[in-house]
Design a protein around this nucleic acid. Structure first.
Lengths: 193, 193, 193, 193
DNA sequence: AATGAATGAGAGTTCATTCAT
DNA sequence: AATGAATGAACTCTCATTCAT
C-alpha cells in the first residue's frame, strides 16, 4: 500500500517565517492582540515549536522589531546627485507608505512601546536618529554643491522633515492624499520645486 | 431597625474620577497595560463598582478618549488678531507638550487603536479633521487680511502643520528640543518670522 | 415557578478548606503531583478562585506547611508527672502515626524540600528543634525529680529519640509493627520500662 | 562512496553516564526538579539520544535508584570479628553521610516516592529489609559468641538502629553533630561502649 | 451604590516524548 | 547511535466580567 507522504512544507527558515508572521500580526492587531498561538498557527506549527525558536514572546517581538527597522533603513539608502537623492528619499517614503503600510503600523507600535520598554527604546531611537542624520546630510551636501540655495538651519529642517513624515505616515490612518500634500509642501519649503 | 447609612466619602462624580484615573493609566502604561482593577483601586473603589458605572472596559476607554479629545480641542480655541492666533496656536501646542505630555501619549495610543476600532476611528478623525480645518482657517484669514502674503496652497500647508506637530508631539519620546526646532521651522516656512 | 436555589456550600472559610485540600493532596501525591486545579476542584471551586485566596501556588504551599507544623506541634503539648509525660509523648506520636499518617507524609515532603527552599527550611528546622528541646526538657526534669536515674547524656538521648521517631514515622512506608518495636526499645533504653 | 564515520567521542557506557548524571541531579534538585533535558546536557548529548537508551523517564529513574541502592548496599558488607563488624557498620554509615551525602538525599527521595510508586516500593523495601536483617544478624552473632551480653530483643534493637540511622541521615539537613551523638548513644545502648 | 467572591476563557510557557533523517 | 525539530498535553496565572448580598 503506497502511502502518499505529504512532504513537510519545506521550512528552510522557520525563524524567518515566524518573524514574518508575527510582523503581520502586529501590523494587524498591534502588540495588544499579538498571540503566540496564532503566530504559530499562521506558520502552520505548534506553539511549542515557536518557543523552540524563540524562548519567550518578548524575544520574538524584539526580533520582529529588528526586522522592521532593518526593512525601513534599507529603503533609506539612496544614490545619485544629491538633489535627486532628496527627491527620491521622499518618493521612497511615499511608495513605502503605499505599498507597505504595515511597516509604519509596526513602527507606530514600536514608537509607543519605546516609552516603556528600554530595550525597544534603543532600537527605535537608533532608527529615528539615523533617519534625521541622513536627511540632514543630504541637505548639507546639496547646499555644499550648490544644488540647494543656502544658508539654512539644517538641523531645524531635518527635524521638520522627519517629524512631518512620521506624523503623516505612522499616525494612522495613513491618508494618501494628506501624505501627498505634506510631501509636496515639504519639497516646496526646502526649495526642491 | 433604622439603618445608619454611612455617606459615601465622596462621589460627586465617580464616573469622572474613574475616567481621569484610566486616562492617567493609559498615559502611563498604554492600552496594553490598562487594568480595570487598577483603575478602580486608584479611585479607591472595588472593580465591581467600576463595572456599575462602565458596563465594559471598552466603554470606559471610549469615555477616556472623549475626555482626552475634548481636553485637546479646548486648547485650540484661540482669539486675537489672526496672525497672533497662529503664533499662539503653536505656542499652545508647545506648552501642552511640555506641561501635559500625557495628553499626547494618550492621543498616540488612540491613533494606533483607531486603525482597528471603528468607534475610535470616528473620534480620532473628528479631532484631526477639526485641527486641520482650524489651521487652514487661520491661514486663510491671515492671508485675507493681509497679515500673511499669498498666494499659497492652504490645504497643503495645513496638512504639513498638522503632520509635523503630530509627528513631533505624539510619537514618543517627545524631545523638547526637536519640537522647538520643528515649530520654529514651521513658522519660518509659513512666513510667521 | 418557584426556583429551587441550591444554597452555596456554606463556605465559612474557603482559605482553610483550600489549605486542607492541598494538605491532603500533598500527602497523597507529594509536591510533585500537587495541581492547583485539583485542589480547587476538591473544594468545588474554580482555579481562579483559588488564586483569589492564594496569589501563587508557592504561598498556598507555605500555608499548608504552617498548618501541618502547627498540627504536629499541638500534639506535643503534654501534662502530668514528668515520667508520664515522656510515655504519653511516645504514645501520642504512635497514635498520630496510626490515625494521621498524612501528617508524617507531609512532613517528609517538607523535610526534603527544606534542603532547597530556604523559606521552608526555617519552618522545618523550627519544628525539629522544638521537638528535640521538648524531649530533652522532659528527660532533664525526670532525672531532676528522681523519676529517671542519672547521670545520662541528655543531648545524645534526645537526638536518638528524635532521629529514631523521624526515621520510623516520616520515612514511608510507615510499618506499625516496626514503629511499635522502635518505641518500645526506646523506652527500654531510656529506662521507662 | 566510503563514508567516513567519526567514532563516537566516548561511549563505553552511555547508559551508566546518564544514570550517574541523573543521580547527581536528583541529589541536587530532587525528583521534582529532574529534567531529562538537563540530564542529557550534563552528559553532552541530545535529549532524543537519552530516550534512545531510556525509553521513558520512569525507566531512567528506576535505574538511578537501582544504582543508588546498590551503592548503599555495597557499603554494608563488613568483615572481621562480629563486635567489630557492628562498630565498623556504624562508622561506615557515618563516613557515607559525610563523604557522600547525595546518596542519602537520593534515598530520601526514593523513600517518599515509594509510597506512591509500587515499582519503587519494591526496591526500597528490599534495601531497608536487607539492612535490618544485616544489623539483626550482626547482633545475633555477637550475642552468640559472647561478645555482647544477652538476652535482648534482637528485632526491636535492629529496628531502633535502622530507624534512628535513617532519621539522622536521610531526613535533611544532615547535621553531623546530631549524627555523631545519635550513633554514640546507639552504641551505648547496644553495649558497644 | 457598593462589594467580596466567584468564574470562563484564555494567556505564555514547560516538558517528556516522537520522528525523519 | 545520534540529532534537530516538532508536538500534545498540561501547568500556573491573569483578567474582564458577573452575581448575591
Amino acid at each position: 500500500m503506497p502511502e502518499e507522504k505529504i512532504p513537510p512544507p519545506l521550512a528552510p527558515d522557520r525563524r524567518q517565517a515566524l518573524v514574518a508572521a508575527a510582523y503581520r500580526q502586529i501590523a494587524d492587531v498591534g502588540f495588544e492582540g499579538l498571540r503566540t498561538r496564532e503566530v504559530a498557527a499562521a506558520v502552520g506549527i505548534n506553539v511549542a515549536t515557536l518557543h523552540y525558536y524563540f524562548p519567550t514572546k518578548e524575544i520574538l517581538i524584539r526580533d520582529v522589531l529588528k526586522h522592521a527597522m532593518e526593512r525601513f533603513r534599507s529603503t533609506m539608502r539612496v544614490t545619485g546627485p544629491t538633489i535627486e537623492q532628496l527627491r527620491s528619499h521622499f518618493a521612497g517614503i511615499r511608495r513605502l507608505a503605499r505599498e507597505e503600510p504595515e511597516l509604519f503600523a509596526v513602527m507606530g507600535e514600536l514608537a509607543l512601546r519605546s516609552t516603556r520598554d528600554p530595550s525597544i527604546r534603543g532600537l527605535y531611537q537608533a532608527t529615528t536618529t539615523t533617519w534625521r542624520a541622513t536627511v540632514r546630510g543630504l541637505l548639507a551636501r546639496a547646499v555644499a554643491d550648490g544644488s540647494l540655495s543656502g544658508p539654512r538651519n539644517l538641523d531645524a529642517q531635518a527635524s521638520l522633515v522627519v517629524a512631518s513624515l512620521m506624523g503623516a505616515c505612522m499616525v494612522p490612518p495613513i491618508q494618501p492624499e494628506r501624505l501627498r500634500e505634506t510631501v509636496a509642501e515639504l519639497e516646496r519649503t526646502l526649495g526642491l520645486r
